[in-house]
Nucleic acid binder design. Structure first.
Lengths: 195, 195
DNA sequence: GCTATGGTGTTACCGGCGGTAACACGGTGT
DNA sequence: ACACCGTGTTACCGCCGGTAACACCATAGC
């Protein structure tokens, strides 16, 4: 019942692709009706595939979250020391939101806020970013022996910091990305020294 | 046409009080109908007073935002040096969200996200927190001569950090507030050293 | 051939939301 | 007596998320 290329899984992917276009184009006005129309169908089909709006949001968020976390994970493995890793990670985050601001807003706002059920499943995104960061911090050679409490509080604090600065930066495009990256990196790397 | 104690201004305050109770009790299910019912009236009156849902949200958010920013402003003036000021500010923020988590969620989520028109008026809240922080950083004796870019990026980054850590902490009440405060303060104070 | 079955698609509806029009009541000034 | 104005109501609109019911069209089995 698989082996074939097409069928249900491709259909789902196609629908998600349509939903993605709508979110990218219309932002928060991405209603179920519009998404269905964009896909050239009507609502009930959408509901058959995703259950409810939360299900579609979950599916939609999952793709981007995995992509983004992969980028961040890779940045966390950058060679060259703690400062280089920090800079690469912050820059990866800001580069991502710069490339697709609408998707980013969808991830941190719609997906995590509007549909509370998503919190347990996709779990925010900033939250998962924080979890990944915590792991990175625990494994950081320069921070060996860091207490668990410190690792986890720092991680979620840093996740919020990058997100907050990124949010602000989206409304202040006159500031170069490199500036934001350098200032945050300086603050964080010096802060890590306290460990 | 003023001088009298009662009339329209008291009425507004009473309605806001009712809205406040609903938000505190029902959280995100604070619909216009139930707010009206809580106030003992019906919808149109609410609309006559506040224009639309965004107007009510703005009015509702404004009170708490001013209260909260006053607390933070006071903390920013704590005597005893940079570390003491940082600790007091972080603690003031976390204490506030601990006291009224529903109101806090309303401020950072509903008011700032759901009603985009609020962004220009009440302007987020985390955003205004960031603005206040930037001013505090510029005036910080220990950070005199800091560049404008650094002050503003740090400010909004720190605002996001405290908010992000606070968000996470709301879901992990087993961690004492003092722990969160101390870990964030340690990171920040050491980071400030890089200026 | 003719019928079951299952997936794709539709139309048409439901309850509830934000928002508004239209009207009813009661005090006040002239 | 009358117009006026603020407070309040009922009843409605359009749109959203969500669902029931039915139509179409392949393939599979006899």
């Amino acid at each position: 019942m698989s082996a074939m290329t097409s069928s249900v899984v491709d259909r789902r992917a196609g629908l998600l692709e349509a939903a993605d276009r709508v979110v990218r184009r219309e932002g928060s006005a991405a209603t179920m009706n519009v998404i269905a129309a964009e896909a050239g169908i009507t609502k009930p089909i959408l509901y058959r595939h995703f259950g409810d709006k939360g299900g579609l949001y979950r599916a939609l968020a999952a793709r981007h979250i995995e992509d983004l976390l992969a980028r961040l994970r890779e940045a966390l493995l950058t060679h060259g020391g703690l400062a280089a890793r920090t800079r690469a990670t912050v820059d990866a985050y800001l580069a991502s939101i710069e490339e697709q601001p609408q998707i980013y807003r969808f991830l941190v706002q719609r997906a995590a806020v509007e549909e509370p059920a998503v919190r347990g499943d996709v779990e925010g995104f900033v939250r998962r970013f924080g979890d990944e960061l915590a792991e990175g911090i625990r494994n950081e050679p320069a921070l060996s022996g860091i207490s668990e409490a410190r690792a986890v509080v720092w991680a979620h604090g840093i996740a919020g910091m990058v997100q907050g600065a990124g949010d602000w930066w989206l409304d202040h495009p006159e500031v170069p990305r490199a500036t934001v990256v350098e200032e945050l990196t300086a603050l964080l790397v010096a802060g890590f020294g306290s460990a």
